[in-house]
Computed example of a mutant assay.
Amino acid sequence: MKFNEHNNPTNPDYPRGYIYSQWKDYKKKIGKYCLIPNEIKQYLPLLTGPELNLYMFYAINADNTYGNSFYSVKTIAQELSVSTKTINNWNNTLVDLGLITHDIPLNHKSALAQLLPLTSFIARPDIGNLDRTRHQLVNAAKYKKTNELYLVIFHKGDKATPLKFTIYLRDGPSTKKDDQVEKAQEDDKVSKLANRDTTSEIEGPKWLMAALEEPNYVLSETDKKIIKNTDIPWQNHGSGQVAWIEHSGYFTLLIKNNAENENDDARLLDTLYSFATDEQVLHFKQNYRHCKIRA
């Protein structure tokens, strides 16, 4: 007989793992609990040595808000009973895979290790933290800016929400092993991430995206008039029903959102993936010329 993994077959009133959930709630309450993202499993084939121990050390000791920890290489080596050279090698591996950033500030013995996002996400900083977010994406986390995308999402009842996103990308995880990288590539010190087999179903996404939403973005008055006074020529697309305009030199995608949940970030992220680069936008414009709204 099959039963739900959360149920206790001998007594359904007491789910299996109930005592664990109580312990977890207690640990979270006193601030001594860390969560390891499920997506770390995509990196496990690349962590062929005990480098995972170092990632676990950083995850356990990082502050839960910013993912930062401050330990010298010497201290970590003592904690994990290895040499400082080994810790340096492990740090290089974790940095190369995009799991952390690692910097030693001038005149400091301790190093700053920062955990990095393991999935794509939408960042919505307030206006006061917009520049800080941009700076950390590019300079600390090594994302590359690829596009700016303007959207207008039409919800039920013809309510329209204008959005502006700056799209940043970095390489996703790869399951390529060191011995699978060609000798010529090894000589050029090409990152393992650059040699990923993007057709493999067991790999993670080719790109990790950070979609930075511009706070308080509004449509221009001209664009409002164009949209309001036009019978929009909706066409089917992977993102739903779409149309587009191009005004003042920028491309604006119109999307009819018939989803029950109007704030579906997963669906929005899928849409942003489809328009993350100038090449993708150009391809779309070439194939959907007939649904453009002409000013």
Rank of each mutant, 00 (worst) to 15 (best):
D187M: 12
A194E: 14
M209K: 04
W207K: 10
K164N: 09
L130M: 11
N147I: 03
D179W: 10
K192Q: 05
L130S: 03
T175P: 07
D179E: 11
P205N: 11
I153G: 05
A141F: 12
T175S: 13
A210G: 08
N129M: 09
H135A: 14
D131G: 05
R196I: 07
I202W: 12
I153Y: 06
N216F: 07
T198H: 07
Y217W: 08
E203F: 04
T119P: 00
A160T: 11
R134S: 03
F121S: 10
R134P: 05
E148S: 12
K145M: 06
V190R: 06
D171L: 11
I167C: 08
L149Y: 04
T133W: 01
N195Q: 13
G157F: 07
N129Q: 12
I127D: 11
T199I: 02
P117Q: 09
V138D: 05
V190A: 04
L193I: 09
D131V: 10
D131S: 15
K192V: 01
D197C: 03
A184T: 14
K156V: 08
K142P: 03
L116V: 09
R132A: 13
I202H: 12
I127S: 13
R196C: 07
E203H: 00
N147S: 08
E148Y: 03
I122Y: 05
L137I: 05
D131H: 09
I122F: 01
G128D: 11
I202G: 08
G157K: 08
A123V: 00
T161D: 15
K177M: 10
T199Y: 09
Q136A: 10
E214Q: 13
E182I: 08
E201A: 13
Y217R: 02
I202F: 15
K206A: 15
I167G: 01
P162R: 01
S200G: 03
K164H: 08
G204D: 00
I122W: 00
A141N: 09
P215M: 05
Y150C: 08
T198Q: 07
F121N: 02
L193Q: 10
V218N: 12
A123W: 02
